[in-house]
Computed example of a mutant assay.
Amino acid sequence: MQRFLLALLPLTMLLGGCTAVGYDMIETASISPRFEDTKPMDFGARNPHKHQIHGIDVSKWNGDIDWFSVRKSGVSFAFIKATEGKDTIDPKFDGNWRAAASAGLPHAPYHFYYWCSSADEQADWFIANIPKAAMKMPPVLDVEWNHDSKTCQYKPSPLTVRSEMQRFMDRLEAYYGKRPIIYTSVDFHRDNLVGQFKDYYFWVRSVASHPSEKYDERRWAFWQYTATGAIPGIKGSTDINVFAGDAQNWKRWLVAMNK
């Protein structure tokens, strides 16, 4: 029980610091977009640019990154692809991980789940490649349907999905001492996660409308709002995300995650 309460403490701190308007709706004055977007969407009143804390997620597809320029541009955090399945590591991970740290940018590794390998195989692979001492923000479990996969078209039942996720996340939490963040997409969440894992932080993808319109009964900590952002220091389009709380919430959350 003590472990469970400790895991919930950062969530309580975050919720307690938000405005009365709600966890994912920060009331601020109308502001211009923080970063350029080659295909901007009109999100209406619940525009992601009302949020103070923006971050990116990157992988090998982003090429060589100038992390000092990224940090200087106003990016506050980065999710960096680390592993996939039971035997794949992103070839840019080590360089990105070290450079983000050198630039002083808070960052977390993410694992892309492969539904044709077991949870233990994938947890073993992640743990073998990501040093415990390097883990400052919680690790991320990326769960979505990979319709373009040439090697795995298997779509397990919702019960199996949740069981595999829980096993994987339990392994990582036991090793790193941090409860993982769950990243997911609209269709995967609809098929498997509505009403589930309420004691976990969620990072959700919603590039055409506010998450509240796409995710039933889901509070979120991070929102991926575009895949076509333009960030200084990165060539080509980039995913951009926002943190649900304000700048003060963000500082408290980072401190809580490093205890």
Rank of each mutant, 00 (worst) to 15 (best):
M1I: 02
M1W: 08
F4Y: 10
P10D: 01
M13W: 11
L14R: 02
G16I: 01
G17P: 03
V21M: 04
V21K: 04
G22I: 00
G22S: 01
Y23G: 02
M25I: 07
M25N: 05
I26Y: 04
I26P: 07
S30D: 13
I31K: 15
S32D: 14
R34E: 15
T38K: 13
K39E: 15
M41H: 02
M41P: 00
D42T: 04
F43L: 02
F43E: 02
A45E: 14
K50F: 11
K50T: 11
H54Y: 09
G55Q: 07
D57Q: 02
S59V: 13
K60Y: 15
W61N: 12
W61G: 00
W61E: 05
N62Y: 14
D64A: 15
D64K: 15
I65W: 13
I65G: 10
I65T: 15
D66Q: 10
W67V: 10
V70A: 04
S73W: 07
A78N: 08
I80W: 13
K81N: 08
E84Y: 12
G85L: 05
T88E: 03
T88H: 13
D90K: 02
P91K: 09
K92H: 12
S102T: 14
A103S: 15
A103F: 12
P106G: 06
P106K: 05
H111K: 05
S117H: 11
S117V: 05
S118Y: 12
A119H: 07
E121K: 14
E121F: 04
W125P: 02
N129R: 15
I130D: 04
A133Q: 10
A133L: 08
A134C: 06
M135N: 02
K136W: 03
V143Y: 09
S149G: 04
S149C: 02
C152M: 02
K155E: 12
P156Y: 07
S163D: 13
S163K: 15
M165A: 07
R167C: 05
R167I: 12
F168Y: 11
R171V: 06
L172M: 07
E173C: 01
G177I: 01
G177E: 00
K178N: 03
R179L: 00
I182G: 00
I182W: 00
I182Y: 00
Y183W: 13
F188S: 03
D191N: 10
L193V: 02
L193D: 01
G195E: 03
Q196C: 01
K198A: 03
W203H: 07
W203Q: 09
V204G: 11
R205E: 08
S209G: 08
H210K: 03
S212M: 15
R218A: 13
R219N: 14
R219G: 07
G229L: 05
G229R: 06
I231W: 08
P232T: 11
P232S: 10
G233D: 06
K235Y: 11
K235E: 14
G245M: 08
Q248C: 03
N249W: 07
W250F: 14
W253T: 06
W253N: 00
V255E: 08
V255A: 10
A256Q: 01
N258Q: 14
